[in-house]
Structures are given as C-alpha cells and as structure tokens.
Write a protein that binds this DNA or RNA. Structure first.
Lengths: 251, 251
DNA sequence: ATTTTTGTTTGATCTAGATCAAGGCGCGAA
DNA sequence: TTCGCGCCTTGATCTAGATCAAACAAAAAT
C-alpha cells in the first residue's frame, strides 16, 4: 500500500472535506476516509464538559483529533495541585503513536467531539506511509517548541504577562490570524473558566480574575458576558506579553 | 540507498563503536560512519564553557549530539530574564531536522564536544532511512514528555521540590540508573552553577543556594567541593520532589 | 604570591501572588 | 419566581521567594 495523500500538506486553515474543521495534520486523512476507513476504523465520540477523555496511565486504544470544543492536557499531583501542559483546540492531534500508555490526562473543557482512529491500525498506516510519519514528526516538533515557549511563561513571566500571553494565543488561534495583520481589535470566545486558566498559567483563579479585570480597567480589553473578550488595543496587549514584538505565537 | 542500520535500536546505555559515549539516538549512526561519512560529513567541534553554540534565529547549518560536557537550551527575554528549557547531556541530540532556523539558544555550560552532521545531508539521509525517521519521532516524543513534566515543576512545585527534582534527574541520568535500584545513596557531579540551576528552575540563585543548603542541613544530601553531591537518603529525596513514587524520571 | 574575577553563602527587607473569606451574578431546574 | 449551584469578583491578610547588600571562597590571571 502506498497511497499518495496530498492532504498531508494541509496547512492551518485549510478545510478537510469530511470533517467540518480546520485541519493541519493527521485528520486531513479524513479526506481519504473511503480508502482509509477499512483499516483505520474511524469513528466519532462526544464528551460533555468535564469528562475525562483519557487518564494518565490508561492504555491508549486510539489516537485522533479534536473536531469541536476545547480539551486540556494536564497533570495532577497527589495533593491536588494541577498543571495544564497543553490546550487542545479543533484540529489538534490527541494521542501518541508508538506509546502504549498515556502520560497525561485529557479532559474536556467544553463539550468535545473527537475524531478517533484505533491506535494499532493507525500505527500500521504510519509505517506504510512515509509522508504521514514526516508530517507527524513536524507536528511533534511544533508542539515541543510550543511547550518550551510555555516553559518561559511559567518560569519567568509575571501574572499580568501570563494572562496577556494566554489571550494572545487563544485569540490568534481562534481568529486564524497570521502574526502580522490586525492592527485593529479582535474579538473571541474564551472558553475556559478562571480555574482552567489558572491551571494553565500556574496561578490561582483569584489572581487570574484580578489580572483580567486589571487589563479591562486599563482599557486593553473589554469583556462581554464574561467569556467573550474584545481586544481593544492589540499592540498594547502584545506589549504586555513581554515577548519580542516579532516572534512566535504561531501555535 | 537503503541500508539496514541495526544500531538504530540502540537503547540508553548501549555503547556506540565509534564515539566513546552512551548514544541513544542519532549518533548511533557513527557505527556506520564509513558508509555515512561520504554524505553526512561528520565532524567534531569543541566549545569552552560559556560559549554560545547556537543563537536563536541562527540558520541551522548542522545537527548533532553532545559527546562530552553539558550544554543548555535557553530563552532570554529583552530585559534579561532567562529560562532554560532543556539540559543537553552526553548523547543528547542537538538541532531540528526540517527547521531552517533555531528557536532557542544553545550554550555550553561546561566545555563541550559536539559531534556534528551538516543538516542538509542529514535530512537527505533521514528521507532515505525510514528507521531513522522513526527513531527521530520517538526521540522527540520523549523530549516533549520531558518538557511537559518540567511544566508541572515550573508551574506548581515549591522551591524545595524543584531542587529535589533537579538533583534526582541529574543524578539518575549521570548514574544511568533505572527507576528501581539504589536504595542506598548515590554520588554525582553537579556541573551547573547556582545561576544555571536557577535559570532552569525558574528561581533566583539565592533561593537555589538556600534550598540546597537546607537539604544538606536536613541530612538528605551532602556536598563535597560545592559541585559534588552525595545523596544520603535516596527515598527521602524522591519524597521531596513531590512526584508519585513510581513514575517518570526516565529522561 | 598577590590581585582579580567568578561563584557562593548569608542576612535583612520587600512584594507579588497565595490564601482565606464573603458576596454577587447568572442560569437552569422545579 | 425562586431556589440552588457553578462561576466570578473583591477585600483582607499572609508568606514564599525575590530583591538588595555584604562578605566570603576558590579559582584564574598577573
């Protein structure tokens, strides 16, 4: 078997024919689902907000990608301290080919639809499809870079910088914006609770609340309905992240 | 070209015939160096402590692996705040096939010998050698897991837990120990300055100094010559990390 | 052998963010 | 329409770790 899969080169923002989502990676194969179905046994699952999709230590039966909703990748210490180590938005890949057991919890933050493939058949496909493996490697390298950016945030940024960075990342991602447009404002839904944000940023929920309201008071953002953010002053928000003006934020 | 490279399955601790180091990944190809030399143009470089090996933004001319010494992967903010995002010990891979530019600084912490391959030929080899790509993917997945473990440390651990975790990681790695032996003590060289440790842990050097001396006073470790650590009570140190007794620390 | 330089310890003080403690504000259920 | 329950806000207080400031130790450099 050696099928040419042009969709492998799918970039963020391209649409996949089958799934109504922005695919950047693996689920791009859905386009070939008639072909792949046979051996990958694709299926969809829905999860309610708060559901644990995968627990650390679980035997990983499937890999897949997020179709709708937001899930989080997190770690919990025995005494309850929790750290989110990844945010899974639509098009993000879930699971690890070649890994028998999960290292982290995957929890649905909002209602989530997942597009699943059984792991074993997927791994077989991976073996026979060099482009897929290549794409996989590229994807994981991106994740690694993102994780390392996040380490800077966790280790060295102030609470305000952390919040600004989070807003930038989610806003940009949701608006599928390149690093250089939008000098005007942007508007997006922040589908995380204050607690989830705190777990992501290594803060307490009280500090998150205070900092968000401080940014509001300072006229950098506006809030409507608590979860809808309007960035009034984009350049200012970027400043507040503490990052170099040019770089990064392409997650 | 389709050479079988059994060394690809080299595990941590196995010796490579050519380089006098423990290879777990790519440099395992040195075993095949006669064959590969032609197109990969392997070479060695030495760096003094403090030398910048690669700067963020540099055009990456090579990939390679650390043969001797310790290097660090780090990020610096405009105002000088620095966060280490990875520690490169002997056998660790440096660089990113498929990436034109470096995302992070690589700095020699101690004198370092690097085994280098030009990136382009290496990438070509990667294309023609599926096992190599597979190995590469596995390696990057490990790094990603390690980065995420570190995110928990940075976001949620106390200063004391951070120090204990660092000592565990370096000690275990240097002694090539599996997670289950050594109920007695262990001894190792801690080749990082207090400042480097601080940059790694998201602390100040004063706090690092105080916490190390606190662990000494509490009888968990002993110090000889400032950079040589003797872990007196291994179980105790493990406790102090805050981690589950069983898990992880296989970097 | 003596001066620099570079790294480490230790103390005193300060502060960002944590912790503790009420209230408030939707919103779905009854 | 009111009750209850998840979120969110806001205030008061506390504290781990940062910051500031010396002095000390060990290794280079002269």
């Amino acid at each position: 078997m050696n099928i040419d899969i042009p969709a492998l080169n799918t970039k963020i923002g391209d649409k996949c024919a089958d799934c109504p989502i922005h695919h950047r990676a693996v689920c791009a194969y859905c386009e070939k689902s008639e072909l792949m179905m046979l051996e990958t046994m694709k299926s969809y699952s829905n999860y309610a907000a708060g559901d644990t999709i995968i627990m650390a230590g679980d035997n990983m039966k499937f890999v897949g990608s997020v179709v709708t909703g937001v899930a989080s990748l997190s770690q919990t210490m025995e005494d309850g301290r929790r750290q989110m180590v990844g945010l899974l938005l639509p098009s993000d890949f879930v699971g690890r080919p070649g890994r028998e057991y999960a290292s982290f919890d995957v929890v649905a933050t909002t209602p989530v639809t997942l597009c699943k493939f059984e792991r074993k058949p997927f791994e077989k496909m991976l073996e026979s499809t060099p482009q897929l493996r290549e794409r996989m490697l590229e994807m994981v390298l991106d994740e690694l870079d993102a994780a390392r950016e996040w380490m800077l945030l966790l280790g060295r940024k102030t609470a305000r910088e952390k919040i600004a960075s989070l807003l930038m990342i989610i806003g940009k991602r949701q608006n599928s914006l390149s690093p250089f447009d939008m000098n005007s404002g942007m508007k997006f839904e922040l589908s995380l609770t204050r607690e989830a944000m705190a777990d992501y940023l290594g803060l307490t929920l009280e500090t998150v609340s205070r900092q968000i309201n401080a940014l509001k008071k300072d006229g950098v953002i506006e809030l409507e309905k608590k979860r809808h953010v309007i960035v009034k002053d984009f350049t200012r928000l970027l400043d507040e992240t503490g990052d170099d003006a040019d770089g990064g934020y392409v997650i």
